[in-house]
């Protein structure tokens, strides 16, 4: 198991209580979990540092992510992406997905990690 879930701290651009889930391994677990978050607002940070906030439209088994109503977090750095409304992000280039606190059920996540640990 290499599940990395932790509170994000000391970052001004996001709510202090936002939770970060990295997509290292446990892809199946994340897939199941992210499916529950469809319709919620998330921020996807890419490995090239681009961070895009938007409504999670869909996610697939490879953790490809479709966002709607997107906006780039750092608009000064990426002005040309201002206009993008919907966006398909390749799962393999995702570094983090930041979830809103109210979109996270810690109990479900704990259960999922326990199942993952037993299954492993």
């Amino acid at each position: 198991m290499d599940l990395s879930v932790f509170h994000r701290r000391n970052k001004s651009q996001v709510n202090e209580k936002d939770i970060i889930v990295t997509s290292n391994f446990a892809t199946q677990l994340f897939f199941s979990y992210f499916k529950e978050l469809v319709g919620k607002e998330v921020t996807v940070e890419l490995k090239n540092d681009l961070a895009i906030r938007g409504t999670l439209h869909s996610v697939d088994q490879y953790l490809n992510i479709k966002l709607e109503n997107t906006r780039v977090v750092d608009q000064d750095k990426y002005p040309h992406m201002l206009s993008v409304r919907n966006c398909f992000i390749r799962g393999s280039v995702v570094r983090y997905v930041l979830l809103p606190q109210d979109g996270v059920d810690i109990d479900i996540l704990h259960d999922a990690t326990r199942r993952e640990a037993r299954g492993g």
């Binding site: 890419l46 090239n48 681009l50 997107t70 002005p79 040309h80 992406m81 201002l82 206009s83 993008v84 409304r85 919907n86 966006c87 398909f88 992000i89 390749r90 280039v93």
Partner: peptide, 14 residues
């Protein structure tokens, strides 16, 4: 190699 694709419609951006 295509990391991301999106529809861009805003004339201010492009």
């Amino acid at each position: 190699a295509v990391s991301l694709h999106a529809v861009s419609r805003d004339p201010e951006a492009y």
